[in-house]
């Protein structure tokens, strides 16, 4: 493969977990809840799915267990935030802390190893439409030869679009974030929709995490490495719209693919590469607040 094709190909690989997590985060974001816990939900999903795959050798069961555990944690965040009236930011952070603690503790308990746990016996994730990758320029590496997670992320994104914009549930969910009083005035509970949104976000984050660990055939501590935060940025950059998420996550994918490539050539320290998403987010948020400030000033 030439440089451009391989860049595009790895961009798609990088963007897949971002897109999945961001799609899930879109639900919470649209109900007006800032889901800081995506990172932790992904991490827990990554751990529990790869470990259960190791024990069951059944990918469906593994993903069920992975998503189940993340949804449980999401339910904890949601219950404490909504029904015990806690600060959503603090509970999200707690979930991140909890996830990193519990994965290490369980990894030590099960494998007597706090570091990288590899599962060499796990088969490589099969790739689909392999032949297409090199047959078609640009679109080839974009669309073909990826694992089923990538295709799943596209399908789930489309489904989410339908759910959010074409079903009564979606209308109510979006109304929750846009103006919760509109639901209260017709006797619906905004909290209920926020709770469900958290569960959905837990599901998507878990699938995103599962992709990271299952593709690798190993669990690395802190395998998510800030991807949950980047997913939040993807939501903001994508203007909270499904197509926007697709574009924004591809931008992140291609920029990370490029910086990985650049790192190899110009020896940029990896810590700087890791810092890029945070700096990028910071700049985006500052610009957004300047825009918002000026808009409100006019009114």
């Amino acid at each position: 493969m030439d440089t451009v094709s391989s860049l595009i190909f790895s961009a798609v690989t990088i963007m897949t977990p971002l897109l999945l997590a961001a799609t899930g985060g879109l639900y919470t974001e649209l109900t007006g809840m800032l889901n800081i816990g995506i990172e932790g939900l992904m991490l827990l999903g990554a751990f529990s799915s790869v470990v259960s795959l190791h024990f069951t050798h059944n990918i469906v069961l593994a993903i069920l267990i992975g998503t189940g555990s993340s949804m449980l944690l999401a339910a904890v965040i949601a219950s404490i935030t909504l029904y015990l009236k806690a600060n959503v930011f603090i509970t999200g952070l707690a979930a991140n802390l909890f996830a990193s603690g519990i994965t290490t503790v369980l990894s030590f308990h099960i494998f007597a190893n706090k570091g990288v746990v590899t599962f060499p016996e796990l088969p490589q994730m099969p790739v689909l439409f392999e032949r297409g990758t090199e047959a078609v320029p640009v679109l080839g590496p974009l669309l073909f030869g990826h694992t089923f997670f990538t295709y799943l992320s596209f399908i789930l994104l489309f489904l989410s679009y339908v759910v959010l914009y074409r079903t009564p549930f979606g209308f109510r969910l979006r109304a929750t974030g846009l103006y919760p009083k509109s639901l209260i005035s017709v006797g619906l509970s905004p909290k209920r929709y926020q709770f469900i949104a958290f569960l959905i976000s837990g599901f998507f984050s878990a699938v995103a995490g599962a992709m990271l660990s299952v593709n690798l055939g190993a669990f690395v501590p802190n395998i998510t490495a800030g991807k949950g935060w980047v997913a939040l940025v993807v939501i903001f950059l994508g203007q909270k719209r499904p197509v926007g998420l697709l574009i924004a996550s591809f931008i992140f994918g291609i920029s990370e693919a490029f910086s990985n490539y650049a790192q190899g050539i110009w020896h940029i320290p990896s810590d700087f590469i890791l810092a890029i998403p945070y700096i990028f987010t910071l700049v985006a948020i500052v610009f957004y607040s300047i825009y918002d400030y000026n808009r409100q000033k006019v009114e």
């Binding site: 015990l84 806690a86 603090i90 707690a94 802390l97 909890f98």
Partner: peptide, 8 residues
């Protein structure tokens, strides 16, 4: 952490 900010 989970519980400390709970108003309830």
């Amino acid at each position: 952490f989970f519980l400390v900010s709970s108003v309830t």
